[in-house]
Amino acid sequence: MMNKNDYINAVDNITAPKELLEKIEALDLPEKKKRPVWKTVTAVAACFVAAVIAFSGIVGGSLRAESENMMPGNGYDMLADSDDKEMTNESQNVIVDTSSTATADRKIVKTASLSIKTKSYDVFLSAVGQKLEQYGGYIEQSQEYNYDNASNRSAEMRVKIPADKLEAFIEELAKVGTITSKVIGRDDITDSYIDVESRIKALETEEETLLGLLKKAESLSDVIELQQRLSAVRSDLESIKARKRSYDSMVAYSGVTLDIREVERVVEDDDSFLGEVKEKLMNNLYELGDFFRELAINLIAALPYIVIIGVVATAVIVIVKKVRRR
């Protein structure tokens, strides 16, 4: 016999190994820029103001619309966002600097991985196809799943898009669906690329030398030996050229992974106070709607019983009245 207690015991026995704990403990990111004091003060003040407005809005009811206009999120989040933007700008500047001081032509492989939620799944998929065509991209692989029912479809796509069109492509997708997570990768392969190029040059020089020797060769054994070495050099050359071609296409085309999920409603991940209130309110309204729909369905489904109970009840009432009259 096995039951959930066995399961709980089994899971209890799973603990993170010591090496893993050490690795995680050692994790550290480069010290981020400290948030200036005045920003923290403003953030706290904005939080307070937002909370007061929201609170009075709920209590009074009248201020509600006003407060939502004034504060789309709370002050904290807004400042955090602007902080993020500053940081990304800085890091982009750093990248530009290195590329201008080093070789002019850096080989950068850009990749993106997007999770998308959409209410109109079919429209979104056709928009993806259309944008790919427009930007000269293509679908590398595509899988669609349909788990329980038709309103829960999902798809995983791997597409290639010309690298210079990547940002525009993502922007277009954001217009038709809700991007819930976005990971952009930038991999600098300049060193490997230069390595491959110089290997090609070296092998080509060797090939020429061998050909020159082959022309001068006199004995049959020399010819055979040279031919063997030549074919080895040529096969090396082929494979390394193939690698260069694949590097070229990786640089020219960005790989984008799309994880598309169909949802009935898109819930924004808004952690501000008002956002939470709004989300809860929307959830409750949605559940209320659901409740009435199910109520209606159940009522209709129960009609036969209701009719029978009605008939029986009427009969009982009629009989009782008759008995009383006597």
Binding site: L20, K23, I24, L27, L29, Y76, D84, D271
Partner: peptide, 15 residues
Amino acid sequence: VTQEAFIRLLETNKP
């Protein structure tokens, strides 16, 4: 994955 999850936590600015 465990390690990656903690890296994500370090990277996020989410309160």
